[in-house]
Nucleic acid binder design. Structure first.
Lengths: 142, 142
DNA sequence: TTCCATGCAAACACTTTGCACCGTG
DNA sequence: CACGGTGCAAAGTGTTTGCATGGAA
């Protein structure tokens, strides 16, 4: 039986992509970091081994996302953040006050998804969704 | 009684900002264009009058948003789009297939807002929300 | 041995900033 | 006539691309 941790090898081979150390390192970095920008991934990878190029990080993250091994969301107005697709699909709440990020299981928004589907003939991609707003702690301060 | 179309004058004065032709033109451009990127606003303004600078557009949009006269949302991975705050607060659905943008009244998501508030102590800013996904027309094609 | 993947450097898209001049209040 | 606003140019940030070399299959 296949080790789930090796799924990425199958995924890459399945679409004719080659297995390279860079791809392995970058995927591992995303899994280890939680939510990381391309820059942070680059730094993390370079800390372990020597030189990996920024363009390789961008190109690799694109491939990994196409294969469904990672996903990205926009948690700030700056660079996107990538995260593993292991575990349940989730969307993000970002507090404008304290920048805190709350991950919410997509299941919790089933009714919202349903209403968009039936009332607007639209299937939302909840794994990409980021909801900006204010958490209760920051609400009180204002 | 004040003409609602002149509210922006009050809003600017209220916070000690000056009334300038650029600010009037840029606000008018946003109202006329519907959803426009800073670049599109610039082009629209320059079509009417002569030279307005890009940095003035950025600076002015920031001021207008602070005053609540416009809002911005991220309808693509590129530049943000600004829109008028006249009318009901709405959020956006963007189809990844055809790029179509559907505006949905925030009221329609009242239950979703409610659940985020009660279950996660989080007050979402629905006017900034963009939901990516696929419309029914593009769903069939895949 | 064949191409896909990488590194490198330059180009790119969008935005921000410093500073001198301009014009509103 | 003071000080906030603007234009301009340069710099900044994040990302993409063309091309030659390198390594997986």
């Amino acid at each position: 039986m296949p080790d789930p941790a090796d799924d990425w090898r199958e995924a890459l081979r399945g679409k004719g992509y080659r297995l390279t150390p860079q791809r392995e390192l970058i995927l591992a970095a995303v899994n280890e970091l939680g939510h990381a920008t391309p820059d942070e991934v680059l730094a993390h990878v370079q800390a372990k081994v020597s030189a990996v190029n920024a363009s390789t990080v961008y190109r690799t993250l694109e491939v990994l996302e196409e294969l469904g091994l990672v996903r990205h969301a926009h948690l700030s107005d700056r660079a996107p953040t990538y995260h593993s697709t292991q575990g349940h699909t989730h969307f993000h709440l970002v507090c404008r006050g304290c920048r805190r990020v709350i991950s919410v299981d997509a299941e919790d928004a089933a009714a919202f998804v349903e209403s968009l589907t039936t009332r607007h003939a639209f299937t939302p991609d909840m794994g990409h969704l980021t909801v900006f707003g204010t958490c209760s702690d920051c609400q009180e301060e204002s």
